[in-house]
Amino acid sequence: MDAAPAIGIGAGFAVVVTANVLEGGNPMSLLLMPPLLLVFGTTILVTIAGGTMKDAKTAGLSLKRAFTSDAADPEELLPQVVTLAEKARKEGLLALEQAARDVDDDFLRRGITMAVDGTDPEELREILESEVYTKRANDKQAAKFFADAGAYAPTIGIIGTVMGLVHVLENLSAPEELGHLIAAAFVATLWGVTSANVIFLPLGNRLKRLSELEVAHMEVAIEGIAAIQAGANARVVTQRLRSLIGSPGTAEAA
């Protein structure tokens, strides 16, 4: 599991709380239910309103992925693809039928299996690229959900502050309460800005980055499968994939 989002968001909140304490504030004064309910509840609801229920469900499922998924590394495919290419070149494509079952990567395994089954190279590439296109579109929508939430949250926080200030004006006859009421009013703006910049926008960027890495992983797999189908030798396969990954090294180093 990649700990980047947990570390970033957790440490971000820790810094905010620490700064509040160092300024002489009480962290509990920030945990007021009305502004928390307004900011988080309304932000999520209006973000749902900007899409479909399917989009909201996809975003909900992607939330777990954002915290628990490891970042895909396209270079991890190199040894597997090169081994398969060597075997296919020496023993023929049909020899990969058993070897494909031992491949850990689901996408690569499906592609190799279809190649072994005799799927036309162009048709196979079209099938796999369609899957990449669909994944990219779904991931883009999930990331957009959190990006939209990050855009709405600060404004909703301002709405909460305005509501609080209206309440302040209603109590001008009780000056001893004004300080507390004004402070409470600005808590909504604080949570609006904080939730946007510490939670929603980072999660949206995290999902976008995960998608980029996973798509790159799949594209490397597609090129590897195509090279294996074409009967390319392992050295050529390695060089081709390294050029896609952008990693240092040559075919001889592999």
Rank of each mutant, 00 (worst) to 15 (best):
L77K: 10
L77M: 08
L77S: 07
L78V: 08
L78W: 09
L78I: 10
L78T: 06
L78K: 02
P79R: 11
P79F: 11
P79N: 10
P79Y: 08
P79H: 12
Q80N: 12
Q80D: 13
Q80A: 15
Q80G: 06
V81R: 11
T83W: 11
T83Y: 11
T83I: 11
L84Y: 06
L84P: 01
A85G: 10
A85R: 01
A85W: 02
A85L: 08
A85H: 02
A85I: 01
E86V: 04
K87V: 03
K87W: 03
K87T: 12
A88V: 02
A88W: 02
A88L: 06
R89S: 00
R89A: 07
R89M: 01
R89P: 03
R89W: 01
R89H: 01
R89N: 00
K90P: 03
K90S: 08
K90W: 02
E91F: 14
E91P: 04
E91G: 01
E91S: 09
G92Y: 02
G92I: 03
G92D: 06
L93R: 05
L93T: 06
L93G: 05
L93P: 03
L93F: 02
L93C: 09
L94C: 08
L94A: 08
L94K: 06
L94I: 07
A95W: 01
A95F: 08
A95M: 10
A95Q: 03
A95V: 05
L96A: 03
L96S: 07
E97M: 11
E97T: 11
E97K: 13
Q98M: 13
Q98N: 15
Q98T: 14
Q98D: 14
A99Q: 13
A100S: 14
A100F: 07
R101K: 15
R101P: 00
D102Q: 14
D102S: 14
V103A: 09
D104C: 02
D105L: 04
D105H: 05
D105T: 05
D106M: 02
D106H: 08
D106F: 00
F107W: 08
F107S: 10
F107V: 05
